[in-house]
Design a protein around this nucleic acid. Structure first.
Length: 876
RNA sequence: GCGGACGUGGCGAAACUGGUAGACGCAAGAGACUUAAAAUCUCUCGGGCUUGGCUCAUACGGGUUCGAUCCCCGUCGUCCGCACCA
């Protein structure tokens, strides 16, 4: 009867081997059962998995195993988001080829994931840097080109003159390249763009129907798309002030109602009128230059002074030919939003007001806040941007802002200027088209050829893939594809003359925008097997970090739409359910101050409590170090715990169980050594209780008790089964864990009695039934432990393939309930009564209680409130 | 600046979204077993008091309600997203 301690180092690999040999997680597309697609955001192969991965994949695995037990045909695949800059950085630093670096990392991380015992279908695995994958991405690109969803245009980019590359905005820190530290220049380059703005309205509208997404994410996307309704309004330039070729300036406004409050126009330094004015006036040219070199960093934007310069240009007010308005170049006007020009109404916009005060422009209040008198209302330093009644606005006076908006829009839409309507209603989006050109080697080559005669020619599909050449060097900065001796030279597919390949590669976000579709038929010779994609998609449950709330998820939503337009899938929304998990965080330890500060790894520390205060001491030498803030695990703060170490010392089940317990899954979880030990104690306890009693239970039938001593045990098991089932459906893993602890606590006594051979037949049968339920509900979280316990109970099959048990209704429902009894809203007593007792029966019983009698003191109660199955409140 | 979320014991958190506040875990304390330690088991564990009971307590101040951690108004604090978007 005495059993050994549970040894995960021996047990876990054994079951992993069995699962692999039996191929039980390999999913068939022709399986007739109802489908369920669960997916965790695939990892970037940076080198080793971290605790964030463990948490992410543990959650997905619980869902996959649970749904499988519930009878679904579950698709749970894994792959690698394998293109990107770190591989090239490693190449430059360590003289290793990006391809080797990447595939070596994948091999390492695959092994690590396998040691977690995840129920993944490894037969569908791929990496985005596999030619077999990116060739299809190139085909998609060509199809999208044909549908007009791809185009080229000149665009301003952040250019790092040292690394000789374009940088993303996130890679520019305080105006300098994040790697080189060089001052970043603004350069105009011809870049490839995806027309995501074609779908702006639909991407916005469909957010309302994504009801299994976190509200937070939907809101972030809504803001990012940034829809606004307004007017483009053309202002005639006063002829004698006009630069060459400029006879009107078009502005975008969401507040045409405030048109009579206009005191200036402001245009971007990149606006054609500004450029024209600059040609004539060196001072203006100098100002434009200054605007263009202004820092793009957050700090620079925050503190940047609003600056402007009068161009000398004057425009005529749309409603008054005798009213001239000055045109300024302003450093805060963006060329790529609206028309690159605005009209300023100082009384209604704080920024316009600051500008007007600085350059002594008129401030005319035009909107009177409701409930204020016109005499008392002035605008000096604080603008009023709200709604109200129009004043100082001629024919608009007395109208509300909304009516005034429509009046102005109607009038100017039917007024002609230079032969066209002076204004047009216009919906604008903040969302910009997606620039995908990257001047990098380690990415998917953009499959086009530049021919001097034919222009831009897509690579014919029969010539795909455009493979990355292997023989590249990284000893000098810049894009190795650009300086490759032969790769870029190619014959034009149309005219046959010498031409050159596009050397830009695609943004890695393109790779991750459709991988979930590829998983549905990774063997297919086309990008997708449409039938398979339509059958599996949408992903029922997608799980990943909140950091992808906007870009990855929005790009994927766009891509599915683009793939629908090109006939590769039949739906628009790829992810039905989305869950954003919290991070794994850890205390930080350090010694020293300021620049001398040295961060210390948790593995080198032991925690002791001295005089009631937690202290961190170095293992080596025992010096005390400072305990710092709890932060996201990061290499720089050294507060990382390596999953390999945890799995080696405690096993995968303990690691999985711990990251799922304690914190709600969408919140951060604090990694502590004590917490892990707690999880490990649980694993050991379950093993001990089950293995010690298994021999007694092995030969009996599993049977819940309906009466007698064992009833409580059966009730606890079946109630827990019902609750945990609900918790898993809602991804409330922490609650499931709490209830499982409760059940194990309830099982401890009976199982000990059974193990000692002192229990009667009914108890042993009920015990076996309860243990089986326990194993089923822990199996998704701690699959190896469940499998091992399942075996010692005498089962020959795998619990990973067993069907989820159903709970017995009669054991879940209580015949008698205990109602709390309140007097004036404060709990004073309990009342145990039949579950189906009627209102009057309950009232009678309540009035008979001693404490109620005492409180009433012979008087009748004012009111008795009975909430069925909940509570009774007596109002005295 | 705009938008959003959150605030409950020493700590992570529960409370079926208006019905017994603190389940479960961690930490701590006491005890049992042991030559000893580990492991295991039992008990205590928000504050106060006149302690078999009463009372206060869910950031703070109000309100609605028979009843508020939950709804409403205000204040403070923390975190997140966007950020010159016209």
């Amino acid at each position: 009867m005495a059993t050994e301690r549970y040894n995960p180092r021996e047990v876990e690999p054994r079951w992993q081997k069995q699962w692999t040999e039996d191929k039980i997680f390999e999913t068939q597309n022709d399986d007739p059962r109802e489908k369920y697609y669960v997916l965790e955001m695939f990892p970037y192969p940076s080198g080793r998995i971290h605790m964030g991965h463990v948490r992410n994949y543990a959650m997905g695995d619980v869902v996959a195993r649970f749904k499988r037990a519930r009878g679904y045909n579950v698709l749970h695949p894994m792959g690698w988001d394998a293109f990107g800059m770190p591989a090239e950085n490693a190449a430059m630093k360590n003289k290793i080829h990006p391809k080797n670096w990447t595939y070596e990392n994948i091999a390492t991380m695959r092994g690590q994931l396998k040691s977690m015992g995840l129920s993944l279908d490894w037969s569908r695995e791929f990496a985005t840097c596999d030619v077999e994958y990116y060739q299809h991405q190139q085909a998609l690109f060509i199809d999208m080109m044909e549908k007009g969803l791809v185009y080229r245009k000149n665009s301003k980019v952040n250019w790092d003159p040292v690394d000789m590359t374009v940088l993303a905005n996130e890679q520019v820190i305080d105006g300098r390249g994040w790697r080189s530290g060089a001052l970043v220049e603004q350069r105009e380059l011809t870049q490839w763009f995806f027309k995501i703005t074609d779908f702006a309205q639909d991407l916005l509208d469909q957010l309302d129907h994504l009801d299994q997404w976190p509200e937070k994410v939907r809101l972030m996307q809504r803001n990012w798309i940034g829809r606004s309704e307004g007017l483009t309004l053309r202002w005639a330039v006063v002829a004698e002030t006009a630069p060459t070729g400029i006879d009107e300036i078009s502005v975008y406004t969401t507040r045409p109602d405030t048109l009579f409050g206009a005191s200036f126009l402001a245009i971007s330094a990149d606006h054609p009128a500004a450029k024209a004015a600059a040609e004539k006036d060196p001072a203006i040219a100098a100002f434009c230059e200054e605007c263009q070199h202004a820092g793009t960093s957050l700090a620079a934007l925050e503190t940047a002074e609003k600056k402007g310069m009068d161009t000398g240009i004057r425009v005529t007010h749309p409603f008054d030919d005798n009213w001239q308005v000055p045109v300024y170049i302003a450093n805060f006007v963006l060329m790529d939003y609206g028309t690159g020009a605005i009209f300023g109404c100082p009384s209604g916009d704080q920024r316009d007001l600051d500008f007007a005060n600085k350059y002594e422009l008129p401030i005319v209040p035009v909107v009177l806040p409701t409930g204020m008198s016109e005499d008392a209302f002035t605008v000096t330093t604080e603008a009023y941007a709200g709604d109200g009644t129009m004043i100082n606005s001629r024919f608009l006076n007395g109208l509300d802002t909304e009516t005034a908006f429509q009046t102005v829009a109607d009038k100017l839409s039917s007024t002609l200027l230079n032969g066209a309507p002076q204004a047009e209603r216009k919906v604008n989006f903040r969302l910009r088209d997606w620039g995908i050109s990257r001047q990098r080697y380690w990415g998917c080559p953009i499959p086009v050829i530049h021919c001097e005669v034919c222009g831009v020619v897509p690579v014919p599909k029969k010539d795909l893939p455009v493979k990355l050449p292997d023989d590249v060097t990284f000893d000098v900065p810049g894009n190795p594809l650009d300086r490759h001796p032969t790769w870029r030279h190619v014959g034009c597919p149309q005219c046959g003359k010498p031409a050159r390949r596009e050397t830009d590669t695609m943004d890695t976000f393109v790779d991750s925008s459709w991988y979930y579709t590829r998983f549905t038929a990774p063997w297919e010779t086309q990008p997708t097997d449409v039938a398979a994609a339509n059958a599996w998609l949408p992903v029922d449950q997608y799980i990943g970090g909140i950091e992808h709330a906007i870009l990855h998820l929005l790009y994927s939503r766009f891509f599915t739409r683009a793939m629908r337009e090109t006939g590769h899938v039949g739906l628009a929304e790829p992810f039905k359910g989305l869950f954003t998990q919290g991070m794994v965080v850890h205390e930080t330890y350090s010694r020293g101050e300021g620049a001398q500060r040295e961060w210390i790894e948790p593995a080198q520390i032991r925690i002791e409590e001295i005089d009631g205060k937690r202290r961190a001491l170095l293992l080596d030498g025992g010096d005390e170090v400072a305990i710092g803030a709890i932060e996201k695990m990061s290499k720089s703060k050294k507060n990382v715990v390596d999953p390999d170490d945890i799995i080696a010392s405690y096993g995968a089940d303990t690691a999985r169980f711990f990251v799922l317990s304690d914190s709600p899954p969408d919140r951060d979880v604090i990694w502590t050594e004590a917490g892990v030990e707690g999880a490990h104690r649980f694993v050991q306890r379950v093993w001990r209780l089950v293995s010690e009693s298994a021999e007694q239970m092995m030969s009996v039938v599993s049977n819940p008790a309906k009466e007698g001593e064992a009833l409580a045990l059966s009730r606890a098991a079946h109630r827990t089964l019902m609750q945990v089932q609900g918790d898993y459906e809602r991804l409330a893993f922490n609650k499931a864990v709490a209830r499982i602890y409760e059940l194990v606590n309830a099982l401890a006594q009976p199982l000990t009695t059974i193990a000692a051979g002192k229990a009667d037949q009914a108890m042993v049968e009920a015990g076996k039934n309860a243990v089986e339920i326990l194993l089923h509900i822990i199996a998704p979280m701690t699959p190896h432990l469940a499998e091992e316990c399942w075996r010692v109970l005498g089962n020959s099959g795998l619990i990973a393939q067993a069907t989820w048990p159903s709970y017995d209704e009669s054991l879940v429902a209580e015949n008698e309930i205990t109602l709390p009894v309140q007097i004036n809203g404060k709990k004073r007593a309990d009342l145990t009564i039949a579950r189906d007792a009627g209102q009057s029966q309950i009232e009678e019983a309540v009035l008979a209680l001693d404490s109620v009698k005492a409180a009433l003191d012979g008087k009748a109660p004012r009111k008795i409130i009975v909430v069925p199955q909940r509570i009774v409140n007596v109002v005295v």
